[in-house]
Design a protein around this nucleic acid. Structure first.
Lengths: 205, 205, 205, 205
DNA sequence: GATGAATGAGTATTCATTCAT
DNA sequence: TATGAATGAATACTCATTCAT
C-alpha cells in the first residue's frame, strides 16, 4: 500500500470517526455534512469522494460498531478459563458482555439501537464490510455445532433473541424505565434461556 | 356544543387525519407542515393553533393509534364465546389480534413500531389522551386479578412482552425477513408463553 | 360617565399599561399584539377597536411617559421652599429631577430615549393627549417670563438642551459608558448653563 | 491575490453596498435578507457565508460609514491653507464638514443617526474594522496635543460634543424641525465652543 | 361593543450538492 | 485527488389583520 493510499485511507477514517462522534452526541438528523467535514478537517467536496450521503456513512458505521460489540463479547468469552459451558451459557455470556459495553457507553446504544434493523444486523454479523470485519454468524454456527443439544430454526432463534435483548435493554439503560437495567437483567436472562429451550429439539434417549 | 366548537374540532381532526396519512406513507422526516396543511385544506397558521410542531401531532397520533390497536384487540377478546381462558391465553389472543391488525395494515406498523418507546406506550395505554381513549393498563390489571395464577413483577413482564412482540414482528411483516410473519408466529407465541411462565409465582399446594 | 364608558376605559387602560410593561422589558419589535392582548386579558379584535397598530399605542405611550417625567420634575420644583431661583437654576433643577427619575428606572429610559423625536416631544409637552396631560411648554414660557434675563430663540434653546441631555444621559445611565452618570453630571450641568448663557440677550444697563 | 479571492471580495462588497442602499431607503426593519441578495445578484446562502445576520452587516456598515464622514472631514481640514487654527476652530471645522456631508445626503443621516451608540462610535473611530479604516481618535489626540490650551476629561468632552451635534442636527436636517439646519448652525457652533471652554483648564500666567 | 378562530403572506435560516480551480 | 465558494430549494414558524358570531 503506497503513501497515497495511506493518505486516502486517512481522510476516510477521519470522516468515519468524526461522523461517529457527532452521530452519537447530536443524533443523525442534527448532524450536517458541514459539521462532519469541518471537524474532520477536510473539504466538503472530499466527503462526496468517499460517501454517497449522510446515510451511507451512517449505515457503514452501524455495521461496524455492532460488529465490534460482538467481536469484543466473543473475545471475552474465549478468554474465560472455565470448562465447557453449555450453548445457553455461552449466549447469556455474550449478551451480558454486550449489555455491559452498552451500559458503559449509553451514547453508543442510542446510536445503534433504534437503527439496528435485521437487514443491517445480518450484514454486520456475516459480511466483512471493512477489511477484516468480525463475523459472528460463523461463531454462532460454531457454538451450535459444539453444543450437545440440537436446535430447530437457529436463525429464528437468534433473530428472536437479538430483537428481545436490544429492544428490552434500550429504555432501562438510557432512562431507567420502567426499571433500571440491573433490575431487569435477571429476568431478561431467564427469558432468553426459556426462549432457547423453546427451540431445543428433544432427543429420545 | 356550538357551531364554532364543531368547526374547531373538524379542523383539528382534519389535521390529525392528514398528518397520519402522510406520516404513514412518507415518514415523518419527509413530511413537512406545508404538506399537512395543504392536504388538510387549512392555513398554515391554523396548524400552530392546535399543535406545537410536527412532533407534537406525531406523538398524539402514536398514542392514539397504539391505543386503538389494543382497544380493538380487547373488544375481540370480549366477544369470544368460550369459557374462562387462562391469563396466558388472553395475552396470546391479544397479541394475535394486534399482529393481525398490523399484517392487514403494514403502513401502520411502519408508523408505530420504531417509535413506540415505553414512555409513549405507557401514556397511550393508561391515560386517556382524548376524550375517551382506551385504557389497557386497567384491563391488564383486571386479567391478572382474574387469573388463578399469580405473577411477580407484572410491569416488567408486560414491558418484556411488548418489546419482544413489537420488535420481532416488524421485519417479518414488512420485509418477510428473516422469515414471514406466519412462520415465526408459533415460535413467538411459544416464547411469550415461556416468558409468562418465567414470571409465574409457584404456589405451594 | 356611565358604566359602559368605564368598562371601555378599563380595557384601553389595561392595553396601554400592559403594552408599556412589555415595551420596556422586551422592546417594541419583540413585542407582538398577541403578547399585549394575552397579558391584558382582552381579545385580539378588541385591540383594533382602540388602536390602529402597535406603533399607535407606542406613540401614545411615549408622549404620556415623557410628559409624566416633566410633570413630576415640575412638581418637585414647585415644592422647593427656596426664594427666587434663576431661570438657569430652574432648568438645571428640572433636568436633575428627570435624570434621577431615569436613573431610578433605566427601562423607562430605554423605552423613551431613542424614540423621543422632537415631533413627539413637542406633542407630549404642549398638547394634552389624554384627558389632562401635563403641558410643559406653558410652564417653560412661564419660567422665561418670570426671569430677569431675556433670551433669544427660546425654542431653539429648549430644543438644544433637550437633545443634549437626552442624548448624553443615555449611555452613561444604561451602560456606564464612557463614564457613569454621576461622573458626567457636573459637566453636563455646566454645559447646559453655558448653552443657556449663549442664548441670553445682554441688556444695556 | 488570486481570481477566487477577487471574486469573494466582489460578492461581499456587492452585499454591503446593496444592503446600505436598502437600509438607507427602507430602513433596516423593512429590509429583508431576500431584498438584499436579490438586488445584489447573489444566492441567499451566499449572504450567510459572509454575515451572521442582518444586524451583522448593519453594524459593519454603521462603523464604516461613520468613519468615512470623519475621514472626509479630516481630509478637508488638512487641505485648508490657513495658518494654525485653534483646537476650537478645528473642532468646529470638522463638525461643519460633517454636517455639510449629511445635509447633502440626508438618507445617510437617517441611516446613521439613531443608531450611532457610543460603543459603535468608538469602535468606528478607533479600531480599523476593514483593512484601512480611518482612525479619528488618534487625530483627536493629535489636535489636543498641538493645542496651546489644555483640557480636562477630553473623552467626556468629545462624547458630549458628538452627542449634542448628532442629536441636534437630525430633526433640522431631515424635517426642518423646529427650524432648518442653517438657522440652527450658528447657535450650535456657539454652543460647541462654550462646551469646549467649559472643559478648558485655566493656566496661571 | 367584544370575541378569538382563521388566515397566509412574509422571513430567517439551513444544507446537500455542484463545479471551477 | 482535493478544495471550498456558491447555490437555491426547502422549511419552520410568526403575526398583523379580518370577520362571522
Amino acid at each position: 500500500m503506497g503513501k497515497l493510499d495511506d493518505n486516502k485511507k486517512q481522510k476516510q477514517d477521519a470522516l468515519l470517526e468524526t461522523a461517529f462522534q457527532l452521530f452519537m452526541t447530536k443524533g443523525i438528523s442534527k448532524t450536517s455534512i458541514s459539521d462532519i467535514v469541518d471537524r474532520a478537517g477536510v473539504a466538503k467536496g472530499t466527503f462526496y469522494l468517499y460517501f454517497k450521503d449522510k446515510y451511507d456513512i451512517y449505515d457503514r458505521l452501524i455495521c461496524h460498531k455492532a460488529s465490534e460489540l460482538f467481536r469484543q463479547a466473543a473475545l471475552e468469552l474465549s478468554t474465560q478459563p472455565d470448562g465447557i459451558p453449555s450453548f445457553e451459557d455461552r449466549m447469556v455470556f455474550i449478551i451480558d458482555s454486550i449489555l455491559n459495553q452498552l451500559i458503559a457507553n449509553p451514547d453508543l446504544l442510542k446510536f445503534i439501537s433504534k437503527n439496528l434493523s435485521w437487514g443491517i444486523f445480518k450484514t454486520a454479523l456475516s459480511t466483512p464490510v471493512y477489511n477484516e470485519e468480525f463475523n459472528f454468524s460463523q461463531l454462532y454456527a460454531n457454538y451450535l455445532a459444539r453444543s450437545l443439544e440440537k436446535y430447530s430454526q437457529p436463525e429464528i432463534m437468534l433473530f428472536t433473541i437479538v430483537e428481545l435483548v436490544s429492544s428490552v435493554c434500550y429504555s432501562p439503560i438510557l432512562y431507567k424505565e420502567p426499571v433500571d437495567i440491573e433490575t431487569i437483567k435477571p429476568y431478561l436472562f431467564a427469558n432468553v434461556r426459556s426462549i432457547i429451550r423453546d427451540f431445543r429439539i428433544e432427543v429420545e434417549k
